[in-house]
Amino acid sequence: MVELVVFYFFGAVLVISASMVVTIRNPVFAALFLVLCFFSSAAIWLLMQAEFLAIALVLVYVGAVMVLFLFVVMMLDINIARIREGFVRFLPFGVIVALLMLIAISLIVGSGYFEMKMPAAPASAVSGYSNTTELGKALFSNYLYPFEVAGVILLVAIIAAISLTMRKPRSSKAQQPSLQVKVKKGERLKVLHVKAEPKQDQGG
């Protein structure tokens, strides 16, 4: 009974905060609502005895990713009025596409192919069962290969980010011999033709 109440509470918070992320005008508030959204989904995961995932969600997403995101949002000067410019113009088109998709999906979902009956509740864990241990075992045995590939993807993301953003430090005054050697006479030497004038300061 208590579980159900907690579930519905966090479920309601999750749905409301998720829709606020999309609808609210201020991007800082939107990011903060996303934090709330993550937090309530973590609580729901906790209810499902997936404590490791719940803690990882709070630590990684709320603690690190969203804080960084907030920094970026605050640093950037986002002009909301300009972003919203096309809203009214594209609204009819968007509504039509959304309606078509809604009809198409509801035709399949509502056609009885999805079994609507409740699946049986999973057997509650035996004492001494640790979600973290099981997850670790699965990651490093059955899913070792995908896990390693995911690691490589993160490495590529780092390489890509650095290669796309790193510029040579501007303050550096180091000499570049390769450029110095390549320099041509024409780039350094400028021959000015100055008109010869008679000396003035003698006897003047």
Binding site: Y143, V149, I153, V156, A157, L164
Partner: peptide
């Protein structure tokens, strides 16, 4: 497995995005 399909695709695509933007 479908997981490896997805991961391989992401590894490929991510590298390509970066190469295009280089």
């Amino acid at each position: 497995s479908m997981i490896t399909v997805y991961l391989g695709l992401e590894l490929l695509s991510l590298s390509l995005y970066a190469m295009v933007a280089m």
